[in-house]
Computed example of a mutant assay.
Amino acid sequence: MQGYVGVRTRLAAFAALVLIAVGAASARPAAAATPLTVAQAIATQNGSVQTVRGYIVGEPVATNTVNRSGFTADYAIALADTASETATSRMLYVQLTTQWRAAWGLKSNPGNLGKQVDVTGALGAYFSHPGQKSPTAIAASGGGSTEPPPSGGGPYDDTYYKDAIGKSGNALRTSLHTIIKQQRVLTYDQVWDALKDTDQDPANSNNVIEIYSGRSIAKSDNGGGVDQWNREHVWAKSHGDFGTVNGPGTDVHHLRPEDVTVNADRGNLDFDNGGSAVNQCPDCWRDGDSFEPRDAVKGDVARMILYMAIRYEGDDGWPNLEPNESVNNGSAPAIGKLSVLKAWNAADPPDAFEQRRNQRIYDQWQGNRNPFIDHPEWVTSIWP
């Protein structure tokens, strides 16, 4: 009997050890998924969140243009499967949101060129090119932190925006207004020269890009004639009746080159989705009370409109501008449709062209910035 009990005891102990071993094995974390190659990421532009491994090969500045030296900003990097790649068709354009720019932007860190990195983010077109947006992790391959830098901010958060950081809602709005209203005011004639700089075609320095049509046209071909380009007020100047007066009428944060005919077709319409096709403006639509621009600049339009609402609050002799839900605002100092503009801001994040434009206005022309280009997330903080 004692022998039988001893056997049972040993069997029970063995079974317990097996259960412990099985439990330990099942508790082990699954092995991390192998990162995608750049080629695989280019073929998987479906919005899924993936980790991609590649070499930093330059700074994207246009759909088919990547700077490999003379870096102009910290807003995007291009990845490739080899460090020597020069064909943009084999590159993935990675958006650098504010928390990643100080560590990974090439203007601030030219030594990052050629480094192999792992980037986790959503795979989808960026700057009309296969890309990866809204990264949640960036690290040197083989190690290093995958968390955003502790400041969580962009290059101007500790200086230009320091009084706004950490605020939300009306407090954020008030701080941003105080910050951005400090600007140099241009004349309407000066706007011509400003637009030739701010809206320069990255692929042809003799041209500008028209905002709605997307057409590249000679800088010198400006004026009021058919097929020339003129100065489009994205916040229609009749909405508040400020005309071309120095101030809101000459603020290049919302003035853009556009074909004379297309500019007339847009007129003073509010912004909304839908309508009939607009002649000479691919992927643009209009009806009796609203205009819809092409997808590639919908976010640009939204951020320009919302900049105007924060910049012009009625405390400096100019109208108090504000977006609303109407598409029939007439001459009121309002423009719509706010819910659509918020959706456009989310769907079309700032690209390299828009970011360069913001920088040129700040550095060369007005000395103020559009905060919604630097921090698109502030839109829903102010207009929840």
Rank of each mutant, 00 (worst) to 15 (best):
G6S: 13
T9M: 14
A13D: 14
I20C: 11
G23R: 03
A25E: 14
A27S: 15
R28N: 10
P29K: 03
A32D: 12
A33D: 09
T34Y: 02
P35E: 01
I42D: 00
I42A: 00
A43E: 05
Q45D: 01
Q45M: 01
S48A: 12
S48F: 05
T51E: 12
I56A: 04
G58V: 02
P60Q: 03
A62S: 11
R68Q: 15
A73T: 14
Y75V: 10
A76D: 07
A76S: 12
E85G: 05
Y93A: 02
V94Y: 07
V94T: 09
L96G: 02
W100R: 00
R101G: 14
A102D: 15
A103T: 15
W104L: 05
G105N: 11
L106Y: 04
A125T: 09
Y126T: 05
T136K: 03
S141L: 05
E147Q: 14
D157Q: 03
K167W: 11
S168V: 10
A171E: 14
Q183I: 03
D189C: 03
A194R: 02
A194Q: 01
D197P: 04
T198R: 03
T198I: 13
D199H: 14
V208N: 11
V208C: 12
I209L: 14
I217E: 07
A218L: 07
A218W: 00
N222L: 00
W229C: 13
N230Q: 00
R231Y: 05
P248Q: 10
T250E: 01
D251N: 08
E258N: 06
V260Y: 01
F271T: 00
G274D: 00
S276D: 14
N279G: 05
Q280K: 12
W285V: 06
R286T: 07
S290W: 00
K298Y: 08
G299R: 04
D300F: 07
R303S: 08
M304L: 04
G317I: 02
E322A: 10
E322C: 04
N324C: 08
N324W: 09
N324T: 09
G330E: 08
P333M: 03
P333R: 03
I335G: 05
K337Q: 09
V340H: 01
A343Q: 09
A343T: 13
W344N: 10
D348G: 04
D348V: 06
D348N: 15
I361T: 05
I361W: 10
N368R: 00
I373C: 13
P376W: 07
V379I: 15
T380L: 11
I382G: 02
W383S: 12
W383H: 07
